[in-house]
Design a protein around this nucleic acid. Sequence first.
DNA 1: AAGATTGGCTAATTCAAATTAGCCAGATTA
DNA 2: TAATCTGGCTAATTTGAATTAGCCAATCTT
Lengths: 206, 206
Amino acid sequence: MDTKKRILDEALTLFSEKGYANVFVGEIAERVGIKAPSLYKHYKNKRAIFDAIIDEMNQRFEEQAKAMNINGTDAAADSKIYMDMSEEHLLKLGREFFLYYLHDDYNKRFRKMLTIEQFQDKELADIYTKLYVDDPMTYQGMLLGMVAASGLLKTDNVAIMTLHFYAPIYYLLTICDRDPSREPKALETLDEHIKQFNRLYGRTNK
Amino acid sequence: MDTKKRILDEALTLFSEKGYANVFVGEIAERVGIKAPSLYKHYKNKRAIFDAIIDEMNQRFEEQAKAMNINGTDAAADSKIYMDMSEEHLLKLGREFFLYYLHDDYNKRFRKMLTIEQFQDKELADIYTKLYVDDPMTYQGMLLGMVAASGLLKTDNVAIMTLHFYAPIYYLLTICDRDPSREPKALETLDEHIKQFNRLYGRTNK
DNA sequence: AAGATTGGCTAATTCAAATTAGCCAGATTA
DNA sequence: TAATCTGGCTAATTTGAATTAGCCAATCTT
């Protein structure tokens, strides 16, 4: 990774731990292994580093959205999997989402940074809402909607069913961000949640 | 309100909007209507203002906990209400909790401040977890547990049922904190959530 | 009512952190 | 290979925000 990228990487780490205002450019430089003034050869100023992080995220996001659209429009492919959605499949869906968001290093740091900075700036709040509220609800709503259409889940309100599936995942995610020592317990709770979700909404209600 | 209290009040407002590090003591002073140096007649330094806010919260919290314990140990009184928990009662419970947390000015500001500062300091993370995760789960778990014991809700796992009740409330709360324009929609969603919750767990499952 | 305390003010002071200036070595390129 | 570019460095410079000094009027206190 070249210096310019390493700066973004270390800055993101620091911003996600302490917030933009509590990070000194000297700290970022030190982590990268250079002196503070050298940093200005790569970015105009401290703010430009932050902005570059946001830009990079937008880029990554677009790629991801594109990839999802392929699997989304081409949802027939996916739906084959979810048409016969068993409890195991549902568990897999929830766990994968949870663990990806929780442990993917970039995601985790970016989410924490946004958590800290979200009230500063409407743009940041909007990004947070999109990434961690609206997009997951849309995507999971689509999948659960297909399962419901297949009859394996029954509901007359897919949106609320999706809320019932996702809100606990989101809740557990924020708990783990705050205190990673709760992860093992959260993982157990996650499984119990999904099993119970399946029971509550499953046709074979037992 | 005397100056010392007004300082805490204005500081909390500013900290909840911009985070501790982005607030200047001069700003706090200005809001209070004094000059920055005068502020030092009341608090040793900027940090002491923050600490005093935390102390005050702890005090308020203890009082509240005490009040809850009265209603909690003396739960027989409460349970009379919840023994015949109708959908309206359940809606009331959820809505009251939600609206209280969302609109109570002190609560709202304190929660936003903690959201911003939670990753700085384990103590702050713990306070957040206590106030917005563990305590609500305990309290609502107790109430829902009593309702379940009365047979009006059926479950073999009160903890997960409570998660299913509370996680969506928490999720909606964080959405509204981030973007108050979503409140009306969130209120609607809240009602739908609780109605659906009631249907899913209710004995008289239609 | 004299003395002490309180809480305000203006004018320093301090200090830390961002940024700029200007030098230089090694890599790149014409 | 000479010229340029790149990205590093040290040594300023700037700035701005926290805090301290020291003054003063009003208000308690005895």
